[in-house]
């Protein structure tokens, strides 16, 4: 049974958590990389740390882990 979504369903609640995080990571990481390497960082405090890129990467890894771990058909 997929956890949280009901008996007989294929997609677990954790798959949705991972999927949304992965989607956001895949949006933020390339945008952050573009802003970093083309010097288009927004004028925010500590923008020299490139938070959009690193946070996007972290969300991609977190999201990918949960998406793969709870992918439909596993377990």
């Amino acid at each position: 049974m997929a956890e949280g979504t009901g008996r007989g369903e294929a997609l677990s609640i954790w798959f949705f958590v991972g999927g949304l995080a992965l989607l956001y990571g895949l949006v933020l990481t390339p945008y952050g990389a573009w802003a970093w390497f083309t010097h288009h960082e927004a004028p925010t405090v500590l923008n020299q740390l490139h938070p959009t890129f690193w946070w996007g990467l972290l969300m991609s890894i977190f999201g990918a882990f949960y998406t793969i771990r709870f992918r439909p058909g596993k377990g």
Partner: peptide, 12 residues
């Protein structure tokens, strides 16, 4: 939020 988060992170 606005102080530290530019486009993308602000949307988040």
């Amino acid at each position: 939020l606005i102080r530290y988060c530019g486009p993308g992170l602000l949307g988040l």
